[in-house]
Design a protein around this nucleic acid. Structure first.
Lengths: 224, 224
DNA sequence: GATGGTAGAATTGTATACAAAGTACAAAAT
DNA sequence: ATTTTGTACTTTGTATACAATTCTACCATC
């Protein structure tokens, strides 16, 4: 009587989506480096499809801000300037602090429980020392807060902004010296939200982004 | 000695862009109504191009949130729910208040002058009574404030959010009873920014969006 | 040596062809 | 009368062909 026949009838994914995900991953992991050209025929041959889905995927990546297109001369992996990063972080600061406020007002009991669990998961992840695991746990923690706003548009927009910074964020997490601070910041943010302390949550969220910005900008400057 | 040779070397626009703009305008003006199907062959014949640029334009519209696609069954003009509108407005509230704050801190003398001019232009536009003219002057006024932040990403994101609501916003402006209030709100917001009164600017921006939300939601409910 | 022009290759933009899936509707079955 | 099913017709997804533009390299000219 249950939906036991809910077997995945919807396993179809257009090739353009497959290609899109493939290329996005390649960009976010650094396999495709900023400035590198994306040539349709080459990618088509490499991935084993025709040019059409490649083009559609590249256009989607352009909309996401991960590639830059110039008419009649193709696409390159987007180069993000320091100014661009600052801009992204500035928007995130506005949205994340707002999310923290909203979360205080709207978070449900289930979400509170999930938040506690995610906070502990994050601390466990730090213990493993694996940056990939830590990054995932970090994303999960923040997703709960953002999701607690109940605002799907907000979720989409913040996810997109986060994507822009994925590479730098990952480097930030790899830096062991940041990890204890991250744990502390998560705790402060969580406690404020659990107590529905709006001002405390907002301040904690701002502090969290500020520190992220400092580290990322420092790291960028080191790269020269 | 000026840039008098800046002649439009870049008059080339890919067909996909032309089609995109055409369709977007049709959606925003209500010529294509929410729920209406966008069929590639029909549009191709109507506009006089092949399916390829049509497809690319539709995909772009999907990314902008103006159309909804279902794999293998095509695209429809996006239907925006009341919840969706509330969500958009909520994000705008966060961003617009933040922009107002930033504008106080960063606005240049030239931008202050432009803001004064735009405010007067808006009042003049209201006198004409033409909703299209008013809407344009309104957009110009807000564009100066957003632009004063110097954050290009912010500009892009707010523009996209504004686009989602264009139809409703337009109805709002058409309602004569709102116009005097709009003038007053613009004045209050401008004065706060010119005086670099951060708190006043933020409050004025919030009030501005709150009133917009009230009117738009009321209008939606009337439509039933 | 620098400049400019030209042929050819490479690449993107657009159109079209073909395959696969979805839709609509009428005839048949219950 | 309602549901099922078969079939013709649309429509989308992908591949490929062709056109237009840009890039590259080389040669001629100054």
């Amino acid at each position: 009587m249950t939906d036991q026949f809910e077997l995945n009838m919807d396993e179809y994914l257009p090739l353009r989506e497959v290609v899109f995900k493939t290329l996005r991953k390649a960009i976010l992991t650094g396999e495709l480096k900023p400035g590198e050209r994306l040539m349709e025929i080459h990618l088509a041959k490499k991935i084993g499809v025709s040019r059409t889905p490649i083009r559609e995927a590249i256009h989607k990546l352009e909309q996401e801000g991960l590639v830059t297109m110039m008419p009649r001369r193709g696409a390159i992996v987007a180069e993000i300037s320091e100014k661009g990063l600052r801009d992204v972080l500035e928007v995130r600061r506005a949205l994340d602090t707002f999310c923290a406020e909203l979360a205080c007002e709207r978070i449900s009991e289930e979400e509170k429980e999930a938040l506690r669990a995610a906070c502990i998961d994050f601390e466990e992840a730090v213990k493993t020392g694996d940056a990939t695991v830590i990054a995932k746990a970090d994303v999960a923690f923040h997703d709960i807060i953002i999701g607690a706003t109940g605002n799907e548009r907000m979720v989409m927009m913040i996810n997109n902004l986060a994507e822009q910074m994925y590479r730098y964020r990952f480097e930030y997490i790899k830096d062991v010296s940041n990890r204890e601070r991250l744990i502390k910041e998560h705790r402060v943010l969580m406690d404020a939200i659990l107590k529905e302390n709006v001002i405390g949550a907002r301040d904690a969220a701002r502090e969290h982004i500020d520190n992220q910005e400092k580290s990322i900008l420092m790291q960028i400057h080191l790269e020269d």
